[in-house]
């Protein structure tokens, strides 16, 4: 979709060659009625196509997303964040989107930053662009314990891959079609697709880079809240990162 560029100002919409599809934004959503309408509307204004994968929400997430103009895919049962993401990838693959952005529907990710992800992907000709909250000067400060966890995983990823990633747990990423095809197999860790994913990308020799994005506090609760959840998450992620070094990379196609 071509848009008129205001003279003297940076274009505030994604640019797409004639005949090609604009980038698709995949938003996995579970009980996100508070912020999802706003997020979807802004992304559509910027020229993206948007698909919301509803993971069997108990609130009005579906209605709000549909009203805002998104395509909505509905899981008949709650399968988790990773499975919802993969459903979005399958949709992107089926419709042959060349560029995909994944974002959260809780208002944490600034929609305008999706433009930066796509721009960096095209300028640097890479397969994955990770939006890093630590590279942006205005970002909010996460709780101390959370920051420690993020730095720990960053250290673990960088010591094994040498990628120099500052925000390995960021769910705000731009992906190429080759990466989407890779993710649409059993290799994709649909339980907790997080820092472990970066190790898989490194093994598969995908080109990964980072750019600064704006992030805000989430409007919904974190899935890692409570006392036992963070402990369980750290154990699970460490094991998953260990297994990422060993799993077969040629998993069967998801369908």
């Amino acid at each position: 979709m071509q848009t008129d560029k205001p003279i003297g100002k940076k274009p505030k919409a994604v640019t797409t060659p004639a005949g090609a599809l604009p980038p698709l934004v995949i938003i996995p959503a579970y009980n996100e009625e508070v912020a999802i309408g706003r997020v979807v509307s802004r992304l559509l204004e910027l020229g993206f196509h948007v698909v919301v994968v509803d993971d069997c929400s108990k609130d009005n997430t579906i209605k709000v997303a549909e009203k805002a103009g998104a395509t909505v895919l509905r899981h008949p049962t709650n399968l988790g964040y990773g499975c919802a993401l993969q459903t979005g990838y399958l949709y992107a693959l089926e419709k042959n989107y060349q560029r995909v952005v994944q974002a959260d529907g809780d208002g944490q990710h600034e929609p305008d930053s999706a433009l930066d992800l796509i721009r960096v992907m095209e300028e640097k000709n890479v397969d994955v662009v990770i939006g890093s909250r630590f590279l942006h000067p205005l970002n909010y400060q996460a709780p101390r314990l959370r920051r420690m966890g993020q730095h720990f995983f960053s250290y673990m990823v960088n010591i094994t891959t040498g990628m120099g990633i500052t925000d390995p747990t960021s769910g705000f990423q731009a992906l190429s079609l080759d990466v989407i095809k890779f993710y649409c197999t059993r290799v994709f860790p649909d339980d907790y697709p997080d820092a472990n994913i970066l190790m898989l990308l490194h093994r598969k020799r995908f080109r990964v880079t980072e750019t600064a994005v704006r992030m805000y506090p989430s409007s919904s609760g974190s899935m890692h809240s409570g006392f036992f959840n963070p402990i369980y998450y750290v154990i699970r992620m460490n094991f998953s990162m260990f297994m990422s070094r060993l799993v077969k990379l040629t998993g069967e196609k998801q369908r």
Partner: peptide, 19 residues
């Protein structure tokens, strides 16, 4: 256990206890 997880015959989630 590691081989079963590696070849996707065990999900990671259920393998932690066996590990």
């Amino acid at each position: 256990i590691i081989m079963l997880v590696r070849t996707y015959r065990f999900r990671e989630k259920y393998s932690l206890l066996w590990i």
